[in-house]
Design a protein around this nucleic acid. Structure first.
Length: 442
RNA sequence: CGGGGCGUAGCGCAGCCUGGUAGCGCAUCUGCUUUGGGAGCAGAGGGUCGAGUGUUCGAAUCACUCCGCCCCGACCA
């Protein structure tokens, strides 16, 4: 993408309405625009990031046979009355009445709906297990929306739902999702840890929150620092006992949110030098709730003895729109956003220092034309001052900045700047690909 | 839902107390000069001062009502 064509209107000054760094940077970098309290428009730059996160999540779900579907944003109140959550969910739920005076609602979550959908198809024990997910906009009428897309009313969530024949299998699904979530966050370049958590209005008996450590986070967390040493890279997802053992390994280390925190247990189970008390942003939440919804909605199947049983379920959410803000919150500096390369809107920022210099412009044009299919490039091709070009690249957090200027190009060199470290490398123009491969595995 | 603050040009703000028909910086447009980290000079365009009602000869300014947004707390993905 050329900046001369891209919808990008960065601003220098901090917006008045924002207090959180991520919120300020998202507004300044032209990623989002507010439309009402807790409701935002995603502008091209922001949407690219959102889509990148979606793509990574989709890919990993697909690898583990978890299939995507798409449920509506608007749901009928009937199912919610059956599950008795129509009244329980309270004012958080946005209620709508249609022209025929039918009660509808803008979905805050989808347990009822998906349970209803699958119960018509999953009739035999042979049809299990199944895990389905969708990526859909949700609406929760927050008491106090704040911090930009961090706590907004309309937000994008990936929510998955597992269906099993008994507790044993349902627990295995839970464990699979537990590890999958760790995998996803790692792939996103984000350090999120699992914490024992409250189940809230979703209900159930087993629950973990995945939290990204950040001082501005709303969750208070307590954990054993050794949990960082655990590594899931070599777990075989086709081996049930390996999966369960790995989750068990995690549960050996103390890691709880404030709702579940017990100071004495913490101190007795954790080596003093490993005690971490901190804050963080909840980016994922998984629940096991068994028959809670299948009983209310009468979702049953026949087991191998021909007997009718209720389906066992769990649900698994990742706040995609919140993740965007959370990543920025944990990765920024005084110049702006520092994207992990995995989710950066563009991997490479190609900066032509001076449009008037023929050699630089010719090389920049050629490099862009022959490489924008291979790499994700934003090409600064405008005739503006260098300071602006570089500051914008830094603000919007482009990880690799290739700078083409007359001083170096006459000697067949270009500069490659690393956004995170600020390190600038002088690279021969024929060795760019080698350099990118070696340094960034591109 | 309790407490506080704010609403004036695309953005950030001043003006309000003490009423007299709106100003600054950034951004935008034009011209010239500049050109390796958000340039300089000269000029230009852009505002029913959140909405309504009232007081007044006269309201951005005073009073009342409403709306919107932000922050702190309680609550929550």
């Amino acid at each position: 993408m050329r900046t001369s064509k891209f919808y990008l209107f960065p601003v220098k000054e901090d917006p008045n309405d924002a207090s959180l760094v991520s919120h300020k940077l998202m507004l300044r970098s032209c990623m989002i625009r507010q439309s009402a309290a807790g409701i935002y428009t995603w502008l091209p730059l922001g949407l690219i990031v959102l889509k990148k996160i979606e793509a990574i999540i989709r890919k990993l779900h697909y690898e583990y046979d978890i299939q995507e579907l798409l449920m509506p944003t608007i749901q009928s109140a009937d199912l919610w009355k059956k599950s008795e959550r129509y009244s329980d969910y309270g004012k958080e739920m946005l209620r709508i009445v249609d022209r025929n005076k039918n009660e509808l609602l803008y979905g805050p979550t989808n347990e009822e709906l998906i349970t209803d959908v699958v119960s018509k198809d999953l009739q035999s024990y042979k049809d299990f297990p199944k895990i389905l997910y969708h990526i859909q906009w949700k609406f929760r009428d927050e008491v106090r929306p704040r911090f930009g897309v961090m706590r907004c009313r309309e937000f994008l969530m990936k929510d998955a739902y597992s269906f099993d024949i008994d507790f044993e299998n349902a627990y295995l699904s839970y464990c699979k999702m537990f590890l999958l979530y760790l995998k996803i966050f790692k792939k996103l370049g984000v350090k999120a840890l699992p914490f024992e958590a409250d189940t809230g209005p979703i209900g159930g008996s087993l629950s973990h929150e995945f939290i990204l450590e950040a001082s501005s986070g709303e969750s208070e967390i307590f954990y054993d620092n050794s949990i960082h040493d655990l590594n899931i890279d070599n777990v075989d997802f086709n081996n049930s006992s390996e999966i369960k053992d790995m989750v068990l390994n995690y549960s050996k280390y103390y890691s709880r949110t404030s709702e579940k925190h017990e100071e004495k247990v913490f101190q007795n189970s954790t080596n003093e030098k490993n005690i971490i008390r901190s804050r963080g942003i909840e980016v994922g939440h998984i629940f096991y709730f068994g028959k809670k919804y299948s009983e209310k909605l009468n979702s049953t199947f026949l087991n191998d003895k021909g007997k009718t049983n209720y389906i066992f379920s769990g649900s698994y959410g990742i706040g995609i729109s919140r993740l965007v803000a959370a990543i920025i919150e944990s990765s920024n500096d005084d110049k702006g956003i520092v994207w992990p390369i995995e989710v950066a809107p563009f991997q490479i920022g190609l900066v032509n220092v001076r449009k008037g210099d023929n050699l630089s412009t010719e090389f920049s044009e050629n490099f862009y034309k022959s490489n924008h299919g291979k790499y994700n490039i934003i090409y600064e091709d405008r005739d503006i001052r260098l300071g602006q070009k570089l500051n914008i690249m830094d603000l919007i957090g482009i990880p690799i900045q290739i700078i083409i200027g007359e001083k170096n190009i006459v000697n067949n060199y270009i500069e490659i700047k690393d956004r995170k470290s600020g390190k600038v490398s002088l690279v021969s123009k024929d060795k760019i690909e080698v350099f990118l491969k070696k340094e960034y595995e591109l």
